[in-house]
Write a protein that binds this DNA or RNA. Structure first.
Length: 528
RNA sequence: GUCCCGAUAGCUCAGCAGGAUAGAGCACUUGAUUCCUAAUCAAGAGGUCAUGAGUUCGAAUCUCGUUCGGGACACCA
């Protein structure tokens, strides 16, 4: 809708301009302050310019009225335009708010270490990533989602060791000698017991078995993580194992060396990441010849770029921010365009319940499990809360609020609007097919504005994806639901002379809510 | 010390490449139900947009400084 209007206006204007929505719909549906920027060039008052411009749009099917007010140019859409669009949308639900784009995107998210179940912080990145994926695909982007599995290195050995020691204590009932760092938490004990069952108790009697337990534990954790993800409606296209890429190190390393951005110092190999704003250069190969953790990411990104996407999006926890510069540097040194990589940082989450804040820490064992929160408030509420706040702000929320069944709980409020429309249709005894092609006549300003709001979904979806600001979609749905509730309270639908007209508008509202929620991974309810 | 993110109503947060009178929800006060679910709606009250300067027709929004809060600063992954 916006695109069409933009083009129509541009046809006359023949220059770039900003199209915005006025604060108050009584001004118009769209507006532009273009006269202000023209004022300087033309050396005329913006008020006059706006008046002259408004004249140009008198003959037009899309606009009912174009007016100039205090220098602003306001466009009021015609009933016919909105009506036609509404009819189309109601018969093309799957295509509504969709689009076509050519870009191929690789979206990497979650990528939590397979050393424990997902905690609430992981869930935020997971939900944001999954929703971006849904939005992008609906808009016609070709997106692959990917989970990078850190299945090599110390933390995996630490997992095996933790299971091993836990087995000694909890299965063999002997005293174990715990090192300073190890994984805590119930799940380690569970793993130890399961290991005793799957293998044999004797596995805890020889330190050589730690390696076996590491590998086995990693697999167990990965399938637990996949199960956690399924709980909130997330499935990945690919899982890429860090370990499996290690064989390619020589190849990637050779590319790096060609760039003359590597050098040897103190028997180690460094990359000049400080050229890219990193605090200092980083070691990629230690003096004993072993590659560092960064090497893993270098191979992985080499691998990603070899697969030839137009754009790469990584969603990382905020604690990884220091990593962006060095990974981008490495990508550049490998000979690729690092600007194709976009990193979204998901900030920390604090959870409240009864006013008590929890801090989470993966190592300490007192982190909040995502699955516990899902159990408390359900998948939909969890998804919604993460999608209703900007990724880059710290988020604090109270689980008790999301359990409430009233307007303080936004997901409930939206669903209620959707269910309400459904109930009204049932009362009226009509179906969408009965009213979707009728002509809307004599629309009151309020009815027209409600319809207009419902038809905004496509541009909101586009904007939410392009700007990676998903909260714009959730905000929109809340305000659309609010408009519906308001209209419902002011107007009787069933039995009124406007019944069909209102049903059609309501159906359009419900359509936007349903499609919008679906893109957020939430199924709209027909009944509360 | 360096870097990243933030600071908007009592609380939790929006504010869309600067634009019309600063928004929502919660909480608070008041009102609406013989009628489609009042699980809702309406009205009221509540703000020096942390702070100082700059840019310009115009700043919550852009730039710089300051203050406060959170986080990150491994040859660990």
């Amino acid at each position: 809708m916006k695109k069409k209007i933009f083009d129509t206006i541009k046809n006359e204007l023949k220059r770039d301009f900003v199209l915005e929505k006025p604060k108050d719909l009584s001004f118009g549906h769209y507006a532009t302050p273009v006269a202000f920027s023209l004022a300087k060039e033309l050396r005329k008052s913006p008020i006059l310019i706006a008046q002259e411009l408004a004249q140009k749009y008198t003959k037009n099917d899309i606009f009912q009225e174009v007016t100039a007010l205090k220098g602003y140019l306001n466009f009021k859409l015609s009933n016919g335009f909105l009506d036609e669009y509404s009819s189309w949308a109601l018969t093309h639900e799957d295509e509504f708010a969709s689009d076509k784009h050519d870009e191929k995107i690789l979206l990497e998210y979650v990528s939590a270490n397979p050393t424990g179940p997902l905690h609430i912080g992981h869930a935020r990145g997971a939900v944001i990533g999954d929703t971006l994926c849904r939005l992008g695909r609906h808009l016609g982007y070709d997106i692959d989602s990917e989970y990078y599995v850190n299945d090599a290195g110390n933390q995996i050995r630490l997992l095996g060791l933790s299971i091993y020691l836990s087995g000694i204590e909890n299965v063999l009932k002997e005293k174990a000698d715990w090192p300073e760092e190890y994984y805590r938490g119930e799940y380690i004990v569970d793993l130890a017991k399961k290991a005793a069952n799957d293998f044999d108790e004797n596995i805890f009697k020889d330190e050589k078995n730690i390696e076996i337990l590491s590998d086995w534990g990693k697999d167990m954790m990965l399938s637990l993580i996949e199960e956690n993800l399924r709980q909130i409606g997330i499935e990945f296209d690919n899982f890429v194992s860090e370990k499996s890429l290690y064989g390619k190190w020589d190849e990637s390393f050779a590319k790096l060396q060609k760039s003359d951005k590597t050098y040897k110092k103190d028997e180690k190999v460094w990359i000049r990441s400080s050229d890219f704003g990193d605090e200092k250069d980083r070691v990629v190969v230690r003096d004993d010849g072993r590659a560092t953790y960064l090497a893993g990411d270098i191979i992985y990104h080499d691998n990603k770029y070899q697969r030839g996407y137009d754009r790469y999006i990584n969603i990382w926890g905020a604690d990884h921010h220091g990593y962006i510069a060095r990974v981008k540097a490495a990508i550049n040194f490998l000979g690729y365009d690092e600007s194709k990589l976009e990193v979204i940082l998901a900030q920390m989450v604090s959870l409240l319940k009864g006013g008590e804040p929890f801090k989470m820490s993966k190592r300490s064992g007192n982190f909040i499990l995502m699955s516990d929160v899902v159990q408390e408030i359900g998948k939909d509420a969890l998804r919604f809360i993460f999608l209703s706040k900007k990724a880059d702000t710290h988020l604090e929320f109270d689980v008790d609020v999301l359990k409430k069944q009233d307007s303080s709980n936004p997901i409930f409020y939206i669903n209620y609007a959707h269910a309400r429309v459904n109930q009204i249709f049932q009362k009226s005894g009509k179906k969408i097919e009965d009213i979707r092609d009728i002509e809307l006549k004599d629309l009151t300003p309020n009815a027209k504005n409600l319809l207009f709001n419902a038809l905004l979904l496509p541009e909101v979806v586009e904007d939410a994806f392009q700007s990676r600001q998903i909260q714009r979609l959730s905000d929109y749905l809340v305000s659309l639901a609010s408009s519906l509730h308001k209209f419902y309270n002011e107007n009787r639908v069933v039995g009124s002379e406007n019944e069909d007209t209102y049903l059609k508008i309501f159906a359009t509202v419900a359509l936007s809510i349903r499609v919008g929620l679906k893109l957020m991974g939430i199924e709209a309810k027909d009944k509360m």
